[in-house]
């Protein structure tokens, strides 16, 4: 018998959907997440070798087949990868950047990822954020750190507005804020028929 070693912060919530595929909200926990501090010219070759990603422009992100690299500040980048690859990534990056003036931290368990997809995703985010979320103002692969209600999060658009099923946004949010943000997003999307999220067990959170 295998013991569960990790429990996602939204294990008690089912993915939520609005009717007619207007909006889908779900959690994707346990992605590999690694923060890299350092200048792009030092980090660039190592990241190209280990993850196959180029260094992103400010407020943008770049992708390879398995990884995504988010710009967070001029000397801070967040590397995302598939589940359970964080230790291998960490070892590879530490080997590639051995002796360089950088910091590499595994933050896989700091954040979880909320995936918001559908034609009404932008309007739902607009209820919680002060960002310019017009399709001209926020485009695919763009990254922004901001507040959603009271929760801090990093927003990245991973699929274009013209894509099948509408745009897809991912919000990287602190583990302990994830439940609040999930409820706020379902609450913000109630105009599109999104049902209020009820936990599968435990205490009912009224917001």
């Amino acid at each position: 018998m295998t013991a569960p070693v990790r429990r996602s912060p939204l294990a008690h919530r089912k993915p939520a959907s609005a009717p007619d595929d207007l909006l889908h909200l779900s959690e994707r926990a346990f992605d590999a997440k690694i923060v890299l501090r350092g200048t792009p010219d030092i980090l660039g070759p190592a990241l190209a070798e280990v993850a196959g990603v180029e260094m992103p422009e400010p407020t943008r992100s770049t992708t390879s087949d398995r990884h995504r690299l988010l710009w967070q500040s001029p000397d801070e980048f967040l590397l995302l990868g598939p589940k359970d690859t964080e230790l291998a990534l960490l070892d590879a990056l530490q080997a590639a950047l051995d002796g360089a003036h950088v910091q590499i931290v595994n933050v896989s368990d700091y954040h979880t990822t909320l995936v918001l997809a559908g034609p009404k995703a932008r309007e739902t985010l607009m209820t919680l954020s002060t960002l310019d979320l017009h399709p001209r103002g926020f485009t695919v692969d763009q990254v922004a750190g901001t507040t959603f209600g009271h929760a801090l999060g990093w927003l990245v658009q991973t699929a274009d507005d013209e894509a099948e099923g509408g745009p897809v946004f991912e919000i990287l949010v602190r583990w302990s804020h994830a439940d609040y943000l999930f409820c706020e997003l379902t609450h913000g999307a109630r105009a599109f028929g999104m049902p209020e999220s009820k936990p599968l067990s435990g205490e009912l959170m009224e917001i």
Partner: peptide, 11 residues
């Protein structure tokens, strides 16, 4: 200067 125009509440 790094992120572009943002609302004052972020600062």
């Amino acid at each position: 200067p790094n992120c572009g125009p943002r609302d004052q509440s972020e600062f």
